[in-house]
Nucleic acid binder design. Structure first.
Lengths: 238, 238
DNA sequence: ACCTGAACACCGTTCAAGT
DNA sequence: ACCTGAACACCGTTCAAGT
C-alpha cells in the first residue's frame, strides 16, 4: 500500500547525516566562527544538528572534551615548517609562532581553550614537536627547550586571547576597526585624566602605552622571548 | 504594646549590614577563595548575603564589573617596592613579578579575570605604575617599557592560570600535591607511549617536559623576559 | 534610593525509556 | 549501540512593584 496523501514524516528534519564525533566538532567550530566560544553550548550544537543535547553524549564525554576536540581540529590548520634549517631556527620559530597566531585569530576565542591545557591530541602534539625540533636543531639545551616550548605557548595563547577581547564584545554588527579605535581613544583619555602624583609614569607615557596594536605587541614579545632563549645556546650555529 | 509571644520576624535573617559594594566584593572574594571563580555567581553571592540576585544590581552593574572589582581588591594585597634602586631594577622587577604571582595564587582562579583586561582600577594601575617606574629607572626606552609591561603582565597571568588549572579540578577534598603528581605521572606515561616516528623529540624529552614544577617555569619565563628587555637598555646602569 | 519576587530565556548533565 | 524527552539543578539580567 502507498502512503495516503497529506502525511508528514514524524519529525520535521531528522539529521540527514547520522551523528558522528566529526560532525559534532565541525558544527561546533561553525558556531565558534560565527558567534564566538560562549555561543558553543551543548544545546546550541545539538539544535544545529537537528537533535537534543542528550544525543551528543554518545559521542563526546562532555563540553570540555568537545572544546579540546575543537582546538585540535583547528590546530590541524597550522602549517608546520617543512624542513628544519639549523642556521635559521630562530626565524623558523618566529614564523611558526606567527602561523599559530594567524590560525587562532581566524577562530575567535579558541585560544581560551588552549590556555592551561597540556597538549595531548595529535595536531597539538605535532605543533609542540615542531617547536622542540627547531630549538634542538638550534642547539638549545633540552631542559631549556622543554621550558621554552611551554613559555612560548603561554605567550601565544595569552596574546591571541588579548587580541580577541577587544573585538569580542563589540555591539553586534559594528565595524570592528572603528570600535577598536574608539575604545583605544577612551583608554587614552582615561589615562590622561589620571592623578599625576599617583601615576606619573602612566600619565607621562600615555602615547606609548596606547599606540601599539596587536601586531607590534606580538612581534615584540616573540622577539624578547627568542633573545632570551637564544642566550642559552651553548655553541652558536653560525 | 509589647509584641505577643511566639511571633517570628518576617524574614529569617535580614542582612545585618546594609548592602554595599564593599560587602558584595568581600563576600564574592570569600566564595572565590573557598570554591573558585566559577562558584562566584550573582545568585550565590546574593544568597551568602541573605538576599536575592536582583538586589546586587543596585551596587554593581553586573557580573563582569563584580569580577573586576574583585581583581582590584586582590591587587591591593600586592606589596609594591618601596623605593626604586636603579642599579637593582631587574631584581626588583623580578621580585614584584613574584609578589604578583604569590597574591594571585592565594586567590585561586583570579588570574583569569586579569587576562585580557586593560588595567583601569586604582590598585591595578598602581602595579603597572610600579613596573613602569622600575624599567624607566633602569634605562629601558619608553616604547619598550610600554610594550614590556604588557608582555610581562600577560606572562604572569598565563602562568598563574596554568598553575591553578592543575589544582583546580581536583576531585573534592583530595591532597592537591598527590593529585598533581598522579596527573604528571599520567602525562609522562602518555608521552612515553606516543609513536616515536611522529613525535621523536617529545618522546626523547619526556623527562625534561615533565619534571619542571610551576616555580621553575615561572623563574625561567621571567628570566628570559628580563634578559630580552634588558637587551634594549641604551646605557647600562653599572 | 534601595530592595524584592517573579519571570524570562537560557545553561550542562543524567537517566529511564525507546528503537 | 545509538538516540530521545523530560527532568534536575542551576545560570545572568530585567522589571514592575513595594518601602
Amino acid at each position: 500500500m502507498p502512503t495516503p496523501p497529506g502525511r508528514k514524516p514524524r519529525r520535521a528534519a531528522p539529521p540527514r547525516q547520522p551523528l558522528t564525533r566529526d560532525a559534532i566538532v565541525a558544527t561546533a567550530i561553525r558556531v565558534l566562527d560565527t558567534e564566538g566560544l560562549d555561543a558553543v553550548t551543548m544545546r546550541r550544537v545539538a539544535q544545529e544538528l537537528g537533535t537534543g543535547p542528550a544525543s551528543l553524549y554518545a559521542h563526546v564525554s562532555g563540553k570540555q572534551e568537545l572544546r579540546e576536540l575543537m582546538l585540535d581540529s583547528v590546530a590541524g590548520e597550522i602549517r608546520l615548517p617543512g624542513a628544519v634549517d639549523p642556521a635559521r631556527w630562530q626565524e623558523q620559530l618566529k614564523e611558526l609562532a606567527g602561523e599559530i597566531r594567524r590560525v587562532y585569530n581566524t577562530h575567535r576565542d579558541i585560544s581560551k581553550v588552549s590556555m592551561g591545557l597540556v597538549p595531548t591530541l595529535p595536531n597539538m602534539l605535532a605543533v609542540a614537536e615542531a617547536q622542540l625540533a627547531l630549538m634542538r636543531a638550534g642547539g638549545v639545551p633540552p631542559r631549556i627547550a622543554a621550558l621554552a616550548v611551554d613559555t612560548v605557548g603561554m605567550f601565544i595563547d595569552a596574546d591571541a586571547y588579548e587580541d580577541v577581547v577587544y573585538t569580542a564584545n563589540l555591539p553586534a554588527g559594528e565595524d570592528p576597526w572603528e570600535h577598536f579605535h574608539k575604545y583605544i581613544e577612551e583608554v587614552r583619555q582615561y589615562f590622561k585624566a589620571l592623578p599625576v602624583d599617583r601615576y606619573p609614569n602612566i600619565v607621562a607615557m600615555v602615547d606609548e602605552l596606547t599606540v601599539a596594536g596587536g601586531d607590534t605587541r606580538f612581534e615584540f614579545g616573540i622577539d624578547i622571548l627568542l633573545r632570551g632563549i637564544a642566550s642559552y645556546v651553548e655553541r652558536p650555529t653560525s
